[in-house]
Structure formats: C-alpha cells, structure tokens
Design a protein around this nucleic acid. Structure first.
Lengths: 251, 251
DNA sequence: AAATTAATGTGTGATATTGACGCAATGTAA
DNA sequence: TTACATTGCGTCAATATCACACATTAATTT
C-alpha cells in the first residue's frame, strides 16, 4: 500500500476510478461480489484505477480478472458517478495512517474522484473470488441483503440493478449468468429476481419458447424433490440475433 | 484562452470533460447544436471542463446554459468515453500556438482526457445559440447530415441518438422537444426521426391517444396546405405517470 | 366558383400477444 | 401406497398490433 501511494500519481489517471458490480446467480438468488474492507465492518465494490494510457474499459477488465480469476468477462459500462461529495476524507486519511505514512497535502490519492460504474455478468460456479490488498474477504452477497457499504457503493449497486432490469430484453443476461444447462424454473427465477416481481410460470415458459432461442436438451434434472424439470441451453446464434432487435415483451 | 491555459490546472478536475448533445426539433427534423471550431472546418459538440468541487452534472448544466441561454434544461448523462486514443495531440498543440504560447510538457491541457456524454432535450424556438471562445459559430445541424466533427464527437452524437431511441418510452421526449401546442403529424415525425423508420399514421394516432397523455385543444393549425390538423398538448401529470412505468409498445 | 389535390380524421377486420386460469404427469417423502 | 409439491401442456377471453378503406377538409388549380 505504501508503495502504491508513492507511484500512483505517476501511473494512474488522476481523480478517476472504476467500480464493478459483478453479478452472479446461485441457489436461485442474484448475488453481487463484494470486498470486506480491512479495519472496518464495511464492504466495497471491487474497483481500481485507470492507467494513464489505458482504456477505461480495460481498467475495469483488469479489476474483474483479478477479483474473479476469469477472462473474457461480459462487461458493460452503465453510469459515471461524479458527486464531489462521494469522497470520504476520513477513510482516505485512515488508509494513510495504516500504511504508516503522513497524509501529504494535495496527494494524488486525496483529491476528489470520479468513478465509472460497470456491471459484469458471470457464471457463478466458475469464479474464484479473492480479496485485494485493501480487503480481507471477497464474498458473494445476495442483492436482497446487501451489507453496509462504503461511500456511494450502495447507490452504484442499485443503479446497476436498475440498468439490468431496463436492459433485460437487450442483453444476454440468461446466457451469461446461468450455467450451460439450466431448467426453465431456474431461468424464470433469474428473471423474477431482476425484475423484482413474480411471473406466471406457464406464460413465462410459453413466451420463452416462442422466442426460439432455447435448445431443449431432452434430459431432465434429477435429484431435486418433486418432478424433474427438463434441461435447456441457449441457442447462442439465435439468442444474439434476437437480442439485437430486442426480445419483444412487456414483463 | 491564454489565461485559461494558466488557470485551468488549478480550477478544473484533471483529465475530465463533459460534452453535450443538444437535441432540438424544427421543421420536422431532429437537430443537434454544434460549434464551428476556429481555424478549422470541423465542428464540435458543446463541451467544457468540470470544476474541482463541482458535480459533473453541474458542469454539463453550465455548458448548456452558456450555449443556449436556457435554464432548467432537461439533461441526462448517457455514456463516458474513455478511449486513450480519443486525444488529438496535434489539435492541442495548435491551440497552444494560437494562444501565442509554447506547449509546456505535462501541461494540464495536454494530458489524456475522459469525457462524460450528456444529451439535452430543448424546445428549439426558445434557444439562442451562441459560440464560445474557441468557436466562431453555433448552429443547429440536422441529425441526418452531421458535418465533419473533431475527435470522437461523431461517435458521441450517434450514441446519444441510440440512447434516445432506446429510452423513447421512458423519457419525456415529446414534451421537451415540441412546443406547447403541436399536431399529431408533428409528434409522429419526431418519433419517426428518432426511431429511424416510418410509422403508420393511423395506428400511431390510435396508440398515442390510447395512452391518455394528450389533451385535445379543439383548435386546428390553419395556414399549412391541405386539411388543418388538430392541436394537442401534453397532459404533463398523466404523461409523467405513464413514463414511470414506461409507455407500452413496440415501435 | 368549381374542381383538384394532398393532407388529415375515423373506422374495420384479421392476426398476434397477453393474462389468468385448469388439469394431468412426475418424482420424492411420508 | 399415498400425499404432495412441482412441472408440462392446454384453454380462452381480453387486448394490442398490423394492414388497410373511406370520408373530410383546406389550400391550390382551373
């Protein structure tokens, strides 16, 4: 950390950061990957700084890969947060203190920061969450029960979910969040969580199948209680073609 | 300009700008307000820098008010452009030359810039376009015939239109772009321009009226050739209520 | 002044989509 | 074996969409 404070001003674009809202779907719940900050009870979105000659998208991709161990992640920029009040001067000074240094006036790290928000969709089971230097845990948290978060990170997470909801007919949400094989009830639960409301099981199935973007695998998912549902996977070509014009439908 | 170069580093957030795509609707055409840059044939979006302790939204509002003479403008952030290649070093040096100064290495103005894109919707007739220091003209240009633009401004304008198209059922587009009184054909033309396709006159009218967001003023617009169309205005309360859940409809 | 023309206002029927259900089939647990 | 929750498939009325036809009106032409 101490070294970071020394070299940051040279390496990174001033006053600019990226924060990622990483979504995963597990046990019928939509989850977000959060970092538990050292020395406090608060959590944070995985984030980082953008190098001076780096595309901001690349900065976000770096963060993503470091936090999840995954490559080729689906990532979308969704909003830039530029409230000058989003700074937490106390926290910054605390960081200096912990690194055993005196806060320097006008230090790169102590200025006001703008942050560009990205959301990512990843397949839950494939990720290997790992903390970074300033955190001592990296865990999935249910979107319905987010813990106390630093700065405006709660607002950023909420806005990401809003965006997801808004773009549900235009982004490969199912394809990126679900495993290759999935059942109709699982797909429905995902939609319900994102939309924040319940859908009729039968109408949902009819509509989904009508899109022609699913391949019926003929198998069933055994093991669970009750009747075993069929397994499906996405017909990626047709799915992407359909998304371009948008899945019609009022959810 | 020379003074600007001296004080900018102190006053403005480093490496950050805002650019505004200002939409207006006139003579059945969707138009964008552009600045003609001095000493070149290229045009630019109205833009500016963000003060160190200023909300980025406020920075955009400042630009808007200065360029149009209007207050209370409808404004939405839509995307942040962070390609390091969006810089035009030649142009920067030119600016230094014109201000009669030598380009200083590592000068605030010569670093790489991120820009936050905003789109604005204004009532065409109420605006009084005026150039800024670095431009010698400020004019409306049809979205269909945009002139050569600097940097990635063309890309920014295109993305703004895409956003408008995407949000057409959720933003008060008609209300902000049209005068208080307007005819159904005018409203339709606006929709057609934004959507980039023609719509059936009769189905459009039926759908619009079904939303219940229009007030029939009973008057007709005389003067034009042929049958005089009725005048409408928005029922703002109902319009806004309808937008919250989104005007249903596949355009 | 009457006829022409190019818009606008209103209506209709076929088709597709939505929303709210019913009912039988299936796998686990009692 | 039975009970039960869950899944697969189907029905039907209400609504929305799409593709038109026809009558009306105001300026222009003859």
């Amino acid at each position: 950390m101490s070294e970071f404070l020394d070299t940051a001003a040279e390496k990174y674009h001033p006053g600019l950061s990226v924060d990622c809202v990483i979504f995963g779907f597990h046990e019928n719940e939509l989850k977000v990957l959060l970092l538990k900050m050292k020395h406090t009870a608060k959590w944070a979105l995985p984030g980082g700084f953008v190098e001076k000659k780096e595309h901001i998208d690349l900065g976000a991709i770096r963060v993503l890969e470091n936090r999840t161990g995954l490559k080729d992640i689906f990532l979308k920029q969704f909003y830039t947060f530029g409230d000058p009040g989003r700074h937490d001067h106390e926290m910054d000074l605390e960081l200096f203190k912990q690194s055993g240094r005196d806060p320097v006036k006008d230090h790169w790290f102590l200025q006001r920061f703008i942050t560009v928000g990205y959301y990512a969709l990843i397949e839950f089971s494939k990720a290997s969450p790992r903390p970074d230097d300033i955190s001592d845990a990296c865990e999935w948290k249910s979107i319905d029960e987010l813990p106390d978060m630093i700065l405006d990170h709660r607002e950023i997470a909420d806005k990401a979910l809003d965006t997801l909801r808004f773009q549900i007919n235009y982004q490969p949400i199912g394809h990126k969040l679900l495993p290759v094989k999935f059942t109709m009830p699982e797909l429905q639960k995902l939609y319900e969580t994102i939309l924040g409301k319940e859908l009729d099981r039968r109408n949902f199935q009819r509509k989904m199948l009508a899109y022609g973007i699913l391949k019926d695998l003929g198998e069933r998912r055994k093991g669970g209680a009750h009747k075993a549902p069929y397994l499906y996977s996405f017909d990626v070509k047709k799915y992407n073609a359909a998304l371009k014009i948008g899945l019609k439908g009022s959810w």
